[in-house]
Computed example of a mutant assay.
Amino acid sequence: MVPFWTEADLDAVARRARLVAFDLDNTLARSKQPMLPEMADRFSRLTRRIDVAVVTGGRQELVVSQVLDVLTPEADLGRLHLMPTSGTRYYRWRDGAWRLVLSHDLSSRDKARAVASLERHARALGLMDGACWGERIEDRGSQITFSALGQQAPEEAKRAWDADGSLKRRLAEAVQADLPDLLVRAGGYTSVDVMARGVDKAYAVRELAARQGIGVGDIVFVGDRMGPDGNDWPAVAAGAFGLRVDGPRDTLGLCEGLLARL
């Protein structure tokens, strides 16, 4: 069981942490929204104390608008690790710009297979009906993402859509049966992701550990979807020390606690 952040011994967490990794949506910021000023301040200050990663299912463009664009001048960009699309891409600050260090893009054939399977099974399950805000199926290069209510759906609608996760699971299982060579996972509140097998948030924390010369257990991973069906769970299953939050307000409190101890 991943502990809620207030249940953890933050003194022990600060002693063990060599890197702190955060999920983005509903952890650092509300879905598709920029970090609030107080969160941007604490996050920026944290990069002066320890290496910090953002590992999210979203695109790099969202990392820019939700995180990078609101950082304070205090942020140490050289200690930031950006891993969008569930860790299938990795960016570092080099020579005054964000450089793509690695990527695991899907082939054109695999993208087409993923889109066709998602569309077919989503229609069969009735998931293409009803209100929609923006694209339902998005090509993120290294990941194809189906969002039942569209990419721009309001958070309240997302939370209410599939409270027990059964609709996402049914879609993911059906698509996985079509694409056994790829990895299909239920993602956020309304999404299902298709990506290269073996490349997810577990891969992300292993890659971070290897590149930093630390153990996976030296990484503290903070996220809101830490149950076995959640998209943050693979990081914990890989050996990172997980801390669960229920939203950005919790993450703000956790960051303040870590800043007082690091």
Rank of each mutant, 00 (worst) to 15 (best):
E256M: 10
S86Q: 14
Q176T: 03
L102F: 08
R211H: 11
S117N: 06
V220E: 00
G257I: 02
D69M: 06
V55R: 02
G187W: 03
A29G: 07
C132I: 13
W93P: 02
A209E: 01
V115N: 10
E7C: 06
L262S: 07
K111C: 09
D105W: 13
R79W: 06
L19W: 06
R261A: 10
G215V: 07
R49C: 11
E119W: 13
P84E: 10
V2Q: 02
A163C: 12
R136F: 07
R159K: 15
R94V: 15
L183H: 09
H121W: 10
G141T: 04
S44V: 00
E156G: 12
L258F: 03
T72N: 14
L80C: 11
G227P: 00
E156V: 15
D178F: 09
E256Y: 09
L118K: 02
R261I: 10
A29F: 07
P73K: 12
L46N: 02
L80K: 04
A196P: 04
E74C: 07
G257N: 05
Q143S: 15
R16N: 08
A116S: 13
A124C: 09
D69L: 08
S65K: 15
G242W: 02
K111D: 10
L208P: 02
P84N: 10
V184W: 01
G96A: 12
E74Y: 11
D139E: 13
P228T: 04
R170H: 12
